[in-house]
Design a protein around this nucleic acid. Structure first.
Lengths: 456, 456
DNA sequence: GGGTATTTGTCCGTATGTATG
DNA sequence: TCATACATACGGACAAATACC
């Protein structure tokens, strides 16, 4: 520590030990040093401020005599309670802690994952492995992301999602947002508006807005963005998340994907394809990424692993188009890599050793079973009173509840019964079941039933 | 063992710890103590020679700093390889894996760190510790950054730099850039131009440009941004990096800092204080951060650990002003945390356990010794032909070379001789010595001499 | 192989002698 | 002569690593 708050001026005429005494005294009086806070040791402070021990000691001693400090031999100096009750030192309300969701037994929020079905052990081992590799910690990383990981990702994303991209096209970052932000910088000389679906995706909109790119929310039909609205808007940049349209819970069918690609080809538009959870579709045949359908032209692909592997892994990647790569290259050195180097190597190992594939297979199966079990449980509980929307989006079910109550009211009722659910577009209810352990599903459905039916 | 080679004379006038230091140093240089030989423990030697622990310790410590010994906590002191074998050393080229700069033997570039003086072991252990903590891996993190780390940072930045901020004012991110980017989003509704010094800082400029904030490069005098230019510019946002003005190598004196704060107060301006390497000043007494001088008003403080701790650690933090915090809060949930959760916990532990403090102290000492040694070596080599600008910026020296050659020419000549140096403002030469091992400094200075003097 | 005693580096407050004005 | 500041040295307390049962 340098104790920067202790300001000394060698030429002020005031003796050093007295300047020290005064600044510490005011720190105690103002409450910056609270009772039993430990002060830097005499030698330490002397070293840091380039003073001699004696100087510091005489300041401390005077403070002791006057009741600001207490000296404990061989242990240190400690502050005493000498706060001068100034005008108002507020009780320091530390409101920055996340409020614990009180009494939520079953959380159907869409931001949960099943913490029981994560291969923590393997992942820990991988991180440890990366940690021990020569020069992972001590050396600088590559700005664009480690080559090793970019190579692994190029292969993986082709196999899993049909993305065609060379390792040079791939940029790594700490999640989707920093990558979007970088992308905005590359693209803003060309395009200043972006089109996206009306019930949008807040976290992406926020980045666009922050980068000064106007967000155009266009209406959409059941298949996604309405093409006529898109054409009329004049936008030459569109953001879509085909695999996980958060609010509606439905995907974008192939027909609309092709229409979008056609739009890009004809107008010179660029599509940002945020393939959030694209790997997790378990019901139907996998729909390949738009990026690949088009051979990598006109589409920037965004993928991430936060919800797939572990919530704490903050690694995302994007595949740039050849044109954007040209723009990126000369300024690549201006962007520091944001993703942890250790995590990058660990992830590369995880992918290359085939563990990722195994994990995905298991997850898909698990979520398939969960979805089925939840569907059955709801049918049993409610019968025809709730319609369950069969859809392809992973990890969520959409319910239409036949009742007079509003969706918001249903949410409140459920929460009162310890079940957290969310609303979806069109007065529907959204259940994200990823975070509910398989064994709890039946009980969770029962709780929902009692919440919604035992009301006057 | 009687350690007969350690001859002490209590009445010689030479301090005991220095006699000890000298005898051990010559034992290492002469090869009597070979690499990894273990030295007697402090207490044993103190006992055998009838000295106090402190006396022995200060001798050992100086030897550590100068690269003769290595201390392994709780295990002992060990000799390093520092045999002075005349001119025939160079067997092991200093391993900068950073770039295969062909034939650069001594790299005085400012982007190097001393890879020999990083506490890899402790850091590995901290990461492992975080890795094993319950729910670090499996659960989501806080958007703003882990509370534990924010609390640690609030205390640390107050102690180390005089920053006054509560944990809720602190936002964590994967380095300075994502934080700047977020900050631009908070601020762009108000201000669309930012003023910064003319030889600017590319990585910050890039972010401003990407976010659509116009960069206004203003002229500056020896103390930094010229206040008249700033006032005339009409900008209400200024970016400064007082502790490390990269190109000039000089800091911003207190007088100018106060002027800047006055400007902020009078015009409602906001100052972004990027305190890059602020902790590392070793020469003078610490200059506290502007943020703290002003009680946290009108100044956003940015700090980071990449160059301080480990190049691979990508964690930065910023302290928002109360007004900006108000703007941030409602949209905090829209920003995902970019910094690795494991690294956050590891860093929090590192700070709270006092290891950060110890590390900083060691670094400061090391760089102080390096700076001194380099200064002496240059004076010996060039005499009055070069003026050495004594300045307070960490890790660099600025030279005025009295010659007809231009600064650029001097750089080229040096490079031809295997020494990389950089130009500074005003036709001066900048030497960033952080990456030069202590033992190589004399030779590096000699190389510079032969490069600059043996020319027709 | 797991607890315990010891050793180790580290850090602490303190004391003394001395050099300035 | 006295206050101030510095360099040097002392011996004790502590936690972590290690060695020993």
């Amino acid at each position: 520590m340098t104790y920067a708050y202790l300001q000394l001026d060698k030429n002020s005429g005031v003796p050093l030990y007295r300047q020290l005494y005064l600044s510490i005294r005011s720190a105690v009086e103002s409450g910056h040093l609270r009772k039993n806070d430990r002060l830097p040791s005499i030698r330490r402070l002397a070293g840091d401020l380039s003073l001699s021990c004696t100087t510091v000691e005489s300041a401390y001693q005077q403070l002791c005599v006057e009741g600001y400090l207490r000296s404990v031999p061989q242990r240190g100096y400690f502050a005493l309670d000498a706060k001068r009750e100034g005008p108002a030192r507020k009780a320091a309300p530390p409101a920055y802690r996340h409020r614990p969701l009180s009494a939520v037994r079953y959380n159907f929020g869409s931001d949960c994952v099943d913490s029981e079905n994560i291969d923590l052990k393997i992942w820990r081992r991988n991180i440890r492995g990366a940690l021990n590799r020569q020069d992972v910690l001590a050396a600088y990383g590559e700005h664009q992301g480690e080559t090793e990981l970019r190579e692994a990702l190029a292969a993986y994303s082709y196999g899993a999602r049909g993305v065609v991209a060379s390792p040079e096209q791939i940029v790594i970052g700490a999640g989707t947002q920093p990558l979007l932000s970088l992308l905005c910088g590359l693209i803003r000389s060309d395009r200043r508006t972006v089109a996206l679906e009306e019930p949008g995706f807040t976290q992406a909109e926020q980045i666009f807005a922050d980068c000064g790119i106007t967000v155009l929310k266009l209406p959409c039909d059941g298949d996604g963005l309405r093409m006529d609205a898109l054409a009329r808007s004049g936008a030459r940049l569109a953001y879509v998340s085909p695999s996980n349209r958060v609010r509606t819970g439905t995907g974008i069918p192939m027909s609309r994907r092709l229409e979008l690609l056609k739009w890009a080809g004809e107008t010179g538009g660029v599509i940002i394809e945020d393939d959030y959870n694209g790997e997790l579709r378990y019901r139907a045949r996998p729909v390949p990424a738009m990026q690949g359908i088009n051979g990598g032209k006109g589409v920037v692909y965004l993928g991430s692993f936060s919800k797939l592997l572990l919530p704490s892994i903050r690694i995302g990647y994007m595949a740039l188009t050849p044109e954007l790569l040209e723009r990126y290259r000369p300024r690549a050195a201006n962007y520091n890599q944001t993703a942890s180097k250790v995590a990058q190597f660990a992830l590369a190992d995880y992918i290359k050793s085939g563990q990722m594939e195994r994990h995905l297979r298991r997850l898909r199966k698990l979520y398939g079973v969960k979805s089925e079990k939840l569907t059955r449980a709801l049918r049993r509980a409610f019968g025809p009173k709730v319609e369950i929307l069969l859809q392809e989006t992973p990890l969520t079910l959409i319910l239409t509840v036949h009742t007079e109550k509003s969706a918001g009211e249903l949410c409140r009722l459920a929460l009162k019964n310890g079940v957290r659910v969310q609303t979806a577009a069109g007065g529907k209810i959204r259940l994200g079941f990823a975070g509910i352990p398989l064994a709890d599903i039946d009980d969770a459905a029962a709780c929902l039933k009692s919440a919604w039916e035992n009301e006057p």
